[in-house]
Amino acid sequence: MAEVSIEIGGRDYQVNCRDGEEAHLREIAGLLDAKARDAQRAVGGINETRHLLLAALLLADEVHEARRNGGTLTKPDPAPPAAPAPPAALQPDFAPILEKLAERVESLAQRLEADASNA
Rank of each mutant, 00 (worst) to 15 (best):
L112T: 03
A114F: 06
I28R: 09
D115V: 06
E3R: 15
I97W: 00
D33I: 00
A55G: 02
P96Q: 08
A23V: 09
S5C: 11
E106K: 12
L31V: 04
R68E: 14
I46T: 11
F94H: 12
R67D: 06
D33M: 02
S107R: 14
P80C: 01
K100L: 04
L32T: 04
I97L: 13
F94T: 01
G44C: 07
A56V: 11
A116R: 13
D33E: 09
L31W: 07
C17G: 03
T72Y: 06
L101S: 02
H64Y: 12
V63C: 14
L59K: 00
L90I: 03
L32Y: 00
I6V: 15
A39R: 05
P87D: 15
Q110A: 15
S117V: 11
L108A: 09
Y13H: 13
S107Y: 12
R18M: 07
A36V: 01
L52H: 07
V105P: 00
P76F: 06
G71C: 05
A88N: 09
R67Q: 10
E62A: 02
E48M: 01
V43G: 01
A82P: 10
D33R: 00
L32V: 14
P78S: 10
A55T: 05
H64N: 12
L108F: 05
L90M: 13
D38Q: 13
N69S: 15
P78R: 12
R50H: 09
P80V: 01
E7D: 06
L108D: 06
S107H: 14
P86W: 03
I97F: 01
P86I: 05
R104Y: 08
L101T: 05
A56H: 07
A95H: 12
R67S: 07
R68Q: 13
R111Y: 03
L101A: 02
R68S: 14
A60F: 04
I6C: 02
A85T: 14
A42N: 06
Y13V: 09
L54M: 13
E99P: 00
H51Q: 04
E21D: 14
L54E: 00
Q14T: 14
G44L: 08
N118F: 03
A39T: 08
G45S: 12
I46A: 04
L52N: 02
P96C: 10
E48T: 07
V63I: 15
G70M: 07
E21H: 11
L54A: 10
A85G: 06
P80F: 01
A60C: 10
S107N: 14
V4T: 12
F94I: 03
A60Q: 09
Q40N: 09
L53V: 13
I8M: 05
A55L: 07
L54Y: 03
D93I: 08
N118S: 14
R111C: 05
G45L: 07
L58E: 01
E22W: 02
A95L: 12
L59C: 09
